[in-house]
Design a protein around this nucleic acid. Structure first.
Lengths: 221, 221
DNA sequence: GAACCGCTGGCAGCTTGCTGCCACTTTCGC
DNA sequence: GCGAAAGTGGCAGCAAGCTGCCAGCGGTTC
């Protein structure tokens, strides 16, 4: 009893978490987390700051992220996931629910988050080696059973907004960007931004390929 | 007997046809023909000359062409057909065989061709009003029962050469033109020519659209 | 209201794609 | 062989598409 217990620290809310445990995120070699979806860090800018900080590390930390399918439920989340993947983060999808967000840093520290209550989550920072080891092995088992993001995404259509599907239809109609943008009441720049984003979601390297995928997924009305 | 018969002239071979009846093709207001496929005018350049001549006429003659599905059996023929269509020629496809090529000029002259014998076809030029009227009404009936080229082509894939299907696969692989051309051992220019030709056959105005169509037709292995 | 953030759209510079033109080679019919 | 025609590839000029950068705008937070 209690040496171990002493080492547990309970933090309330993201702000406190960042303040007291932030350096764990910034400076590490190995980072793993499991969560339902991308809604961690409601705090605006928090995620961006962490990513930016981490980006400076040499060598960059090995990051593994485990999510449930809820993390691909909407276009924005999915795009984010894809960007993570491109940035070298290893992402896997696990069918079972993961309501208790789990973070493991360098296999030495675990942070277990409870579900939000009144908008605030409680984070328990654990350093007790026995507990951490247990969490690590559980994470490992779940990770092993989960499927690579790329594989998971390969045969299911991305969740697209109505606007994105409009754009696909216009592209499918053979409209030039100019005309399509006018039709949608947006600037050429924005239209192309949208198209580029959609291509990313479709994992397409060319518009031709995007056409194939969009048709394959039945995204064209 | 015979006033009518006298008016029939039998010509042997394309060269003679062109020589004796060529002006009919060049200067007319209304031109209709029915044939199996595009292999009329084996004589090199003959077709081109006729088209060029006709193109100069003001107003341009109304041209109707009736073919069997054999006229779309290979890529080259189909492309030719599409070009005709684009040039304003009305093209229809008729499921029944049309072994006796028939040409009607200004509803006044009919030319009936027999099947080739030893490479030479026999052409009977008919001016007899009774016969011509009969031929015209038959043509008319067949025309009415036939289907517009566009409709006919809408739901069937174009006949593509192996090379064209290779190109589609490369496009589908997201390769840039540069890389694809190198892979196929052809110049960038030629590659793009091919791509443009394929887009024409797919009735696509953009590569995106071509991707959709190609996938829809199952042309991608 | 001040600072901040995300979204938008203009601009600029670049890449990619498209096409007419022409010269060269290959092919084919005579 | 010879000549015409088709096919090819280089070039050049243009159209279309892509993207980083930045300024402006409208919300939100403090």
């Amino acid at each position: 009893m209690s040496v171990d217990l002493d080492r547990n620290v309970v933090l309330r809310g993201e702000a406190e978490l960042i303040e007291r445990a932030g350096r764990l995120f910034f400076a590490c070699e190995e980072f793993a987390c499991a969560a339902t979806d991308m809604n961690t860090w409601a705090l605006p800018g928090a995620r961006e700051r962490i990513v930016a900080e981490r980006h400076r590390l040499r060598p960059p930390p090995a990051v593994r992220k485990l999510y449930t399918p809820a993390a691909l439920a909407d276009e924005e989340s999915e795009r984010h996931l894809v960007e993570l993947d491109r940035a070298g983060v290893r992402v896997r999808i696990c069918p079972s629910p993961l309501p208790h967000e789990t973070i493991i840093v360098d296999r030495r520290v675990a942070i277990l988050a409870g579900p939000a209550e009144a908008g605030v989550r409680e984070y328990t920072v654990v350093r007790s080696p026995g507990v951490v080891k247990g969490v690590v092995s559980l994470f490992r088992a779940t990770w092993d059973a989960a499927v690579e993001l790329a594989d998971y995404r390969r045969d299911r259509p991305p969740a697209l907004t109505e606007e994105s599907r409009d754009i696909l239809r216009l592209l499918g109609g053979g409209l030039k960007d100019e005309a399509a943008a006018r039709r949608l009441g947006m600037s050429l720049r924005t239209y192309r931004r949208r198209v580029a984003e959609i291509l990313t979601l479709l994992d397409a390297e060319s518009r031709f390929q995007a056409g194939i995928r969009a048709h394959g997924f039945g995204l064209l009305g």
